[in-house]
Nucleic acid binder design. Structure first.
Length: 260
DNA sequence: ATGACTGGCCCTGCCAGA
């Protein structure tokens, strides 16, 4: 079973790339972030025609997350518990029912948190607290669980081409990284790091300053696996070539492979 | 050395992203 996460930076701008990707790679599940649209302009029928079921949460202009699945999507949750009054579309979760069992998958668009000093950083930390609390509950189910998405967290210096440039940034602050480690401490596995300890495994390159051409990337798109999912981990692929296409997202797709 | 982009929206500079 293959589960891809991809911050597409506008589903309308990236629709052709997405459909190409689905055709070429045919992942079982795709977790999308930054749809940047309400659902009336979401290309649901085009994605369904490609063979996928859809569970999506939209928002005008910003955020927006979706689960696409070749298998039925059950038990859909929109938003994290404890976020009453939070209108930002940043979380959707569902149970994927395959012939050989179920996997619970979440598509997460964690807040960026910049600029510091604004209300955005406390919002990021509060969102992470809610995610930790919910993940703790999900871990009690002792089932295969994949928490995938754009975490807006650079976990370690080796996850940035130029770590010094990110000092003091909401993506790399010690407090941000500590909260990410709290998630891992629940017993979740960072899938890429379980397979590959190398530096230079990036998933995002800024549009500005020739970041792509100079490989000034960061790794911020992650799959976190429960033990029952980690037991089945076969590998992780970063689809780096997507960034070299015309009109790319600034993030590339990342796919985790689990044994059937 | 510095700065370099892209997308959506209130349709046009501005906010947001990372």
């Amino acid at each position: 079973m293959r589960i891809t996460t991809w911050n597409v930076n506008s589903i309308r701008q990236r629709q052709a790339h997405l459909l190409d990707f689905l055709k070429e790679h045919a992942p079982d599940v795709v977790c999308l972030q930054e749809l940047k649209t309400t659902l009336d302009a979401f290309p649901k029928s085009e994605i369904e025609d490609a063979g996928y079921n859809v569970a999506a949460v939209g928002q005008k202009g910003f955020n927006g997350v979706a689960l696409l699945s070749k298998h039925p999507i059950e038990d859909v949750r929109e938003g994290l518990p404890g976020n009453d009054g939070d209108v930002q579309a940043r979380y959707v979760e569902g149970v994927i029912a395959t012939g050989s069992g179920v996997v619970r998958v979440a598509s997460i668009y964690l807040p960026n948190g910049n600029p510091l000093g604004s209300e955005k950083y406390p919002y990021k930390l509060a969102f992470m607290e809610r995610l930790i609390a919910h993940a703790r509950d999900l871990m009690r189910l002792e089932e295969p669980l994949v928490l995938a998405g754009d975490y807006n967290v650079i976990p370690e210096p080796r996850d940035a081409a130029d770590p010094a440039a990110w000092e003091g940034d909401a993506l790399f602050l010690p407090q941000t990284r500590a909260k990410f480690r709290e998630l891992l401490a629940l017993g979740l596995t960072d899938a890429l790091r379980a397979c590959d300890e190398a530096a230079g495994r990036y998933t995002f390159w800024d549009y500005q300053a020739g970041a792509w051409q100079r490989d000034k990337g960061i790794r911020i798109d992650h799959h976190l696996l429960s033990p029952q999912a980690a037991d089945r981990l076969e590998g992780v692929t970063i689809h780096k070539q997507e960034r070299a296409k015309e009109k790319p997202s600034d993030h590339v797709p990342v796919t985790v492979r689990l044994k059937a």
